[in-house]
């Protein structure tokens, strides 16, 4: 075990210890939300950073996952885990469908299609009263239970951290396999990739459904965390926020989703100073804007550089960054 892994583990342990030290329930709730956002941003890092496909409609998958799990557990009385799995399956199918336009479109046109998709899903959520409760929202969703009692927010934190770790593991493994190499080839030059015998359609299908599953799982967990859903959580601005997370974190870096998800969820909360409530959204969007302009590569590469320096690693030989 080298010094770098030791430092990484220390930072990880310090992060995981936050709920044990800080007993403010609101802070822990925001950390829970940050972890869920990090899951979605990780999916977008795989989708955009690795495969070069743009999606500005991921709030739709977040919403589909949330409503699917909530409705399944409510109507059939099945345990939460069944709800989460059904949310993931539904998002998988819809993610596959959304990958079809990407066979032909790229760049801005693809982002416009995904925006339309997000808005259509949102309109359906708002207007399908009998299923989703419309703009009134969906009440009384069962919380996650352990040994017969609902779990606390601290326990949810560790559950979400474990799921995020799993997502990180899967994404990193994938990025280093032949799939990841194929995806990077698609990103850099699609025609060349096709000529080299890479099935670009299959890879796009795969990466779209993967990021959709991540967002679906995050949505399902969110439904059982808050036990109340309203369409307001899944508006278009949220999709933009998710992409902002992945860009702020570092779209080409495997840790980008995690760091960006945490940072972008926390920045507005830190600016929520008493007496300045009307300015905090202005301030936070400006902060993110400045971050994107100043650090187009994201926070994660700078973070890694900083750790390398702490560990005294020569950046050339010790680099294990997925690129």
């Amino acid at each position: 075990m080298n010094r770098k892994s030791v430092i990484m583990l220390v930072i990880l342990a310090a992060f995981l210890a936050i709920p044990l030290v800080d007993s403010n329930q609101y802070h822990i709730y925001m950390l829970d939300r940050a972890l869920l956002n990090a899951m979605i941003a990780s999916g977008l890092v795989a989708l955009t950073g690795l495969a070069g496909q743009m999606s500005l409609g991921h709030a739709a998958f977040y919403g589909i996952g949330a409503y699917a799990s909530a409705i399944v557990t409510k109507t059939f009385g099945v345990p939460v885990i069944v709800g989460v799995i059904s949310a993931a399956v539904l998002c998988l199918v819809i993610g596959m469908l959304l990958s079809i336009p990407s066979f032909k479109l790229s760049g801005f046109y693809l982002s416009l299609v995904t925006i339309s998709f997000g808005n259509i899903v949102w309109t359906v959520i708002v207007n399908w009263y009998s299923l989703t409760g419309g703009s009134l929202g969906l009440l009384g969703i069962q919380p996650i239970r352990i040994a017969g009692r609902a779990i606390t927010r601290t326990e949810f934190f560790y559950l979400a951290a474990a799921v995020l770790a799993l997502i990180y593991f899967v994404t990193t493994r994938m990025a280093r396999s032949y799939i990841g190499r194929g995806l990077r080839a698609v990103r850099d030059d699609e025609m060349a990739a096709e000529t080299a015998g890479i099935d670009t359609k299959r890879l796009k299908l795969l990466v779209f459904s993967l990021s959709a599953i991540y967002a679906g799982i995050a949505g399902a967990l969110y439904a059982h965390l808050s036990t109340f859903l309203s369409p307001e959580s899944f508006v278009q601005a949220e999709s933009a926020n998710f992409v902002a997370m992945s860009v702020v974190g570092g779209i080409r870096h495997m840790l980008g989703g995690t760091i960006g998800g945490l940072a972008v969820t926390m920045i507005p909360e830190m600016l929520r100073v008493k007496g300045w409530e009307i300015y905090y959204l202005m301030g936070s969007s400006l902060a993110i804007l400045v971050l994107v302009i100043m650090l187009p590569n994201g926070l994660a590469p700078s973070f890694e550089k900083f750790i390398d320096r702490l560990a005294g690693i020569d950046r050339k030989s010790g680099k294990r960054q997925v690129k």
Binding site: T48, M54, L56, G107, F108, S111, A237, A240, V243, A244, V247, I251, I278, Y279, L281, M282, S285, L286, I288, L289, V292, I293, M294, P296
Partner: peptide, 21 residues
């Protein structure tokens, strides 16, 4: 800083949130 299209999209989206607020 050689920011690509995605960075411009996100920057302008955040700008629109900023102007709205």
């Amino acid at each position: 800083r050689e920011g690509g299209r995605l960075e411009f999209i996100i920057a302008t989206m955040m700008l629109s949130v900023f102007l709205l607020n």
